[in-house]
Write a protein that binds this DNA or RNA. Structure first.
Length: 198
DNA sequence: CATATGATTCCA
DNA sequence: GGAATCATATGA
């Protein structure tokens, strides 16, 4: 059994920065989800992507303020959880500040505690599912329970590639805004034909 | 109200 | 390579 993590909790100021900065800084950090009746689920982030507001045509904020983007356009440090392809939840954390529309998508992690050894967290859908981060948590403050993040103990080796699954966004799809722990075996396997290397 | 599409995953 | 499957955005 693992020892409970003792790293400090990430404060709102951590998230109140450009998503590009936050996305890189989150690789290696821990996500904690405490829910009643089960052990706290803890995962180490090994892959993120930055989404940078209305001008970023791959970012949901491009459509302006709607019910879906209400959280995305709100205060930094909140969970932005949405459903994609009618079946998968994606867990993001809002960044920068009100109206910015910045967020970091957590695309993969590796199990730390409360998840079991064989559990796969590679891919945004699998990460959200295993961690129990469903749409009911959309808008939740991630600086306090039940969902919060912990600082990383050591700075990981980072690889950078373009974002996955955003080919529709034209030249914005080519921006190198995906960050991976270069030494982790738990990063997602990009769709066939996608650009990028580990 | 009707339609198109997607920050994915699984199967053949 | 292609299906599954539906919330969301957009246009009639």
């Amino acid at each position: 059994m693992s020892v409970p993590p003792r790293e400090p909790r990430l404060p709102r100021a951590f998230f109140a920065r450009d998503a590009l900065v936050v996305a890189r800084a989150l690789v290696g950090c821990l996500v904690v989800h405490e829910s009643p009746g089960v052990a706290a689920r803890v995962a180490r982030i090994v892959e993120t992507e930055a989404y940078r507001g209305p001008r970023d045509l791959a970012c949901h904020a491009r459509v302006g303020l709607t019910r879906r983007t209400r959280t995305l356009l709100g205060e930094a440090g909140h969970a932005y959880v949405f459903v994609v392809y009618g079946m998968h939840d994606c867990f993001n954390v809002t960044c920068r500040g009100v109206g910015a529309g910045h967020a970091v998508l957590v695309r993969a992690g590796e199990p730390v505690t409360g998840l079991g050894e064989g559990v796969r967290l590679d891919g945004p859908g699998r990460f959200a599912l295993a961690m129990g981060l469903t749409r009911g948590l959309d808008g939740a403050d991630v600086t306090a329970p039940p969902v919060y993040l912990l600082s990383r103990a050591k700075r990981p080796r980072i690889s950078v590639t373009p974002r996955v699954g955003v080919a529709y966004a034209g030249e914005w799809a080519d921006r190198p805004w995906r960050f991976l722990d270069a030494r982790s075996a738990h990063v997602s396997r990009p769709p066939r034909g996608a650009l990028g290397r580990g």
